[in-house]
Write a protein that binds this DNA or RNA. Structure first.
Lengths: 121, 121
DNA sequence: GAAAGTAGTTTCCTTCAGGAAACCAACCCA
DNA sequence: TGGGTTGGTTTCCTGAAGGAAACTACTTTC
């Protein structure tokens, strides 16, 4: 039986692994804010309050919870700095930066989609 | 002011467009089943019942609703075939196939993530 | 001693995505 | 006449996600 390149790539044997991998990614990036937070941290370290004001619409509760999730999954590192009022810095780990291609793929497709919709109307 | 390559790419000017693009993508691929459905249709046309049994765990109501969403967004084409009991075929549009890089990026990252977790434990 | 700035946590509430099961409707076959 | 097959829709329900606002705790400054 001949298979196209695509079918080889996604053969039934590797198919369930494929689904699992996608599920894993969706679980880790799930929720309304995780990708926004990662997008904010791609530029570098940010303090809790900075994230709170730069991510429009997020409440402190959600920011705190989502950052904990990201920390649990090793995507983000939390550092308490012994400043006058204590400040806390969040930054992407090297591992967290590996998510960038996923985000880029989504951004590219979304942009193309928007252009296509605009042209049609 | 000097900027790294990354900062040029994601300059403040294009930043909100970037967020919008990501939101668009997430909206269209949102929900528990859309990516699974697209993944199933990458192999070719499938009837409603075939999708229902090949996508483990989905209920008819959800399948119906998600397919409608995908059709609305031009990712999927629905064709009624005048067979003895009427059958309905769903297939990806050419446009629907452009989502593949996004799914591939998610699958790749998920797989890498799983391997990393496995090595650590 | 009060106010202001840091980084959260707690409580209470609402909404909505999604699941289970029953139902519908057209058609064929026996 | 009634069961099987197709492709759905309707109804009812629940859990989880997320929002608003108040509260905590520590320190510095006024």
């Amino acid at each position: 039986m001949k298979m196209t390149k695509e079918e080889q790539q996604l053969s039934p044997v590797t198919c369930s692994a494929h689904h699992r991998a996608i599920s894993d990614t969706m679980d880790i990036l799930s929720g309304k804010w995780k990708i926004r937070i990662i997008g904010e941290l791609i530029f570098g370290k940010k303090r809790f309050g900075e994230l709170l004001s730069s991510i429009e619409g997020i409440a402190a509760k959600m920011l705190s919870k989502e950052l904990q999730d990201l920390e649990t999954n090793q995507l983000v590192k939390r550092t308490v700095r012994q400043t006058k009022p204590i400040t806390v810095e969040y930054e992407l780990t090297a591992y967290g930066r590996t998510v960038k291609p996923v985000i880029t793929a989504m951004a590219n497709w979304g942009q193309q989609h928007r252009e296509l919709i605009r042209k049609k109307q």
